[in-house]
Design a protein around this nucleic acid. Sequence first.
DNA 1: AGTGAAAGAATCACTTA
DNA 2: TAAGTGATTCTTTCACT
Lengths: 153, 153
Amino acid sequence: MLDKKDRKLLCILQQDCTQSLQVLAEAINLTSTPCWKRLKRLEDEGYIRSRVALLDNEKLGLGLKAFVLIKTQQHSSEWYLTFVKLTAQIPEVLAFYRMTGEYDYLMQVEVADMKSYDRFYKRLVNGISGLVDITSNFAMEKIKYTTALPVPE
Amino acid sequence: MLDKKDRKLLCILQQDCTQSLQVLAEAINLTSTPCWKRLKRLEDEGYIRSRVALLDNEKLGLGLKAFVLIKTQQHSSEWYLTFVKLTAQIPEVLAFYRMTGEYDYLMQVEVADMKSYDRFYKRLVNGISGLVDITSNFAMEKIKYTTALPVPE
DNA sequence: AGTGAAAGAATCACTTA
DNA sequence: TAAGTGATTCTTTCACT
């Protein structure tokens, strides 16, 4: 289980994982060695999955974020695996969930512009059969975005 | 602009930013100093926004992901600012977009379970007036999730 | 873009509470 | 069982080529 220092450490690392052990250790009132041991433990136990660089989408020319809602009539596991494999290969697909509610799937897609979205769309519909209804909604404004999960008490 | 080595570097760092300069440098056929200079440049120019730890939601007891679709009748900038401020303070809200389409806003929420979601929901509706229609859709299965943006050619 | 040196950080065996 | 000290090794950073 996690104690207060572990949770604080996780909160800090979710915001910025570049800080040195000394700085991290100070933040939780420890010296670097016990802090390092905690960090290793949090990694080994799987609390920390990875440390990654977050890039700027505008800088990369990715100005359009789409949420794609999908209905299907295909429900065989074979069809499903083909669908999963296809989307795993499309780098524009950042996230993909099977959903409750009216639509079966929700896909998050990041592209440069409408023209690129259209290319993605064609790749999707040509890549797999059985997609009955595809509704695309676009983000006009990003109000909040974080990868930091709420760390429970 | 970005050359091939820059793009490769960004791709690698989006997957794992813990590797040493030596390892990174080898991957793009350079020695550590020129690789380090590229990295600094990519940071200074804003391509790299941050480096963060990604945590495991299951490990943290966060088993429920919701996509909340919201319609409103309020469109004054004052109301909008209150709404933005409220959601910024709610750690369960990971992402929040103003949208095209039928609904005005889309919110991504991460909580432990339905009980927690209900608490979040009440906090939301009690925190702000003017939300006409709130539709909650839940992820049953995570098929794909990455923070790695597609790095253009 | 590369070399080599200096400064800084991570890692570990060992000690202490 | 958890924290701290100090030594060693590895990394980053920088002046210079």
